[in-house]
């Protein structure tokens, strides 16, 4: 069994730095061998990560400056599968079911997208920390 490749990021919780996460995912996917559609996989993972982090900034931290987001990517090339963990120390997430309202853009779209774009989504609240775990098979 291969040991997963681990990449860790720690970012200020602000919209202006979200593109750094996307860039990291893109480069990780670019150099993962034998993927059938790396461009689509990269796009889907970037968007899911963007939505999780925007949710952390806007809701967990309620847009306040001076906070951090901790991210860890675990790439298991033997499957291949990517697991992405996103942690914050903000307010707990209100665990609503993701639904898409009749008029898109009126709320719930970010969570809906996350669930559509990856295989598995898990949310944990441990002490004062939120952790989102996203898993996607790169096939």
């Amino acid at each position: 069994m291969n040991t997963p490749i681990r990449i860790q990021l720690e970012l200020p919780a602000a919209h202006r730095f979200l593109n750094i996460i996307g860039g990291c995912i893109q480069e990780l996917i670019n150099r993962t061998p034998n993927l059938s559609d790396p461009e689509s996989l990269s796009y889907q993972l970037q968007l899911a990560a963007q939505e999780v982090c925007a949710n952390i900034i806007d809701h967990a931290y309620q847009g306040m400056d001076g906070n951090r987001i901790w991210i860890e990517f675990q790439l298991d090339e033997s499957v291949p599968q990517l697991t992405a963990l996103f942690s914050d120390e903000g307010q707990p997430f209100n665990d609503a079911q993701p639904t898409l309202s009749d008029l898109p853009g009126e709320g719930g779209m970010g969570l809906f997208l996350i669930h559509q774009l990856v295989d598995h989504v898990e949310y944990q609240r441990t002490q004062n920390r939120n952790t989102w775990v996203l898993t996607k098979t790169l096939a």
């Binding site: 970037q46 968007l47 939505e51 925007a54 008029l103 898109p104 853009g105 009126e106 779209m109 970010g110």
Partner: peptide, 16 residues
């Protein structure tokens, strides 16, 4: 090349 839900919400707001 890339759009997230915040951008899409802005487009819907213009439409409304």
């Amino acid at each position: 090349e890339f759009m997230d839900s915040a951008a899409m919400a802005a487009l819907v707001s213009l439409l409304k």
